[in-house]
Amino acid sequence: MTRCAGGARWIARGIAGGFVATLLLPVTAAPARAQSADLVLCDRIAADPADPDKPAGVRGVAEIAPADVETAIRYCRNAAGSRRAIYALGRAYAANKQPAEAIAAFRKAADKGSTSAMVELGVAYASGAGVARDDAKARQLFERAAEAGNPRGVSNLAALGGGAPADAGKTRALLAKGADTNAEAQYQLGMMLAEGVGGPKDDVAARALFEKAAAQGHPAALERMGAFAQSGRGGTQDSGAAKAFYEKAAALGNADAAAALKRANCQFAIKDKQGRLVTNLCF
């Protein structure tokens, strides 16, 4: 056997008393398979900007434009070998007011591992949109997405709250994974720490989480920071800071913060003989 330039090999093998040289060409890696035109167009008009499966070079659209819906359905359906295309197809069906088709597409994409599709299915089960409402299934889907690192899975799991006692510890652990950057996860984990749900109570850590979420403009976290600053819970007592937090939260529509501001201005309560509140005196 001898070698040729470029890595090809000649192998001499005997046939009927003679020798025949056979050229074996080198094995080379197959070229990367180009994306289909259908998938490219599906991405362009229907990709979800928040989908972890979306290629870095694809911008995506928050909502599929009405004029693009039928086109999106056609191209994404043609590219349905890709799980992100199946998920985008579900988005297009949802935009076209075809809930049954949307759910079927999301289910298929989720079975292929699309965490964004898991989130959409979870939302459907949590709200009863297109399927029978089932909070347990919603939680399972959000947990799967959260465990895979999907930020929307974390925030939607957080929105369900601490859950049943049996899974509160798991929920707390999953929220901790997303609490570095996700304001909703920070707030919900802070609430679990403040109330001792799913693990030890920790006012200092809860306050730190509320502060992080408040810095991102989370209304409920701003309200909690107001309450913690007002009472000195988990840190320094500061009435001025409390009022500032309440004002920011109230401006964002938080009713609890607005009520706290009113109580601060109406500190004197008028009660009847039975001790029931009649009104507050405001100054």
Rank of each mutant, 00 (worst) to 15 (best):
Q188Y: 03
G149P: 05
D43G: 10
V204P: 01
I64D: 01
A145R: 10
Q274S: 04
A264P: 01
D203A: 11
A16P: 00
K177V: 09
R224S: 15
F245D: 05
N78F: 03
M191W: 03
M225K: 12
Q98A: 08
A194F: 08
E63I: 09
Q98D: 08
T279G: 01
P99I: 06
R233D: 12
R83A: 09
A117Q: 07
A208P: 02
A72E: 01
A194N: 10
D238I: 01
V27N: 09
F283Q: 08
D68F: 01
R263C: 06
K262L: 08
A88E: 00
R74I: 01
A126M: 10
S127A: 12
E101V: 00
L261R: 01
F268V: 15
A21H: 07
D38L: 07
A242G: 05
A126T: 03
V154P: 01
D180S: 15
A159T: 09
D43S: 13
M118I: 05
A258Y: 00
V119A: 05
S36K: 08
E223D: 07
G240N: 10
A183T: 05
K108M: 11
K248I: 08
K262E: 11
C266A: 08
T171V: 15
L157N: 10
A166E: 15
E247Y: 04
V204K: 13
F19W: 06
G60T: 15
L189S: 03
Q98V: 00
L281Y: 07
G57P: 10
G81P: 01
R107W: 09
P200V: 06
A105V: 06
A37C: 10
T115H: 05
M191P: 00
L261N: 04
A255D: 10
A124P: 04
A255N: 09
E184A: 04
N182A: 04
Q237R: 15
G163N: 07
G122F: 07
S114P: 09
R233T: 15
C4F: 15
P66L: 03
P99L: 12
A269T: 12
E120D: 08
P31S: 13
D272W: 06
D43F: 14
G217D: 14
A250H: 03
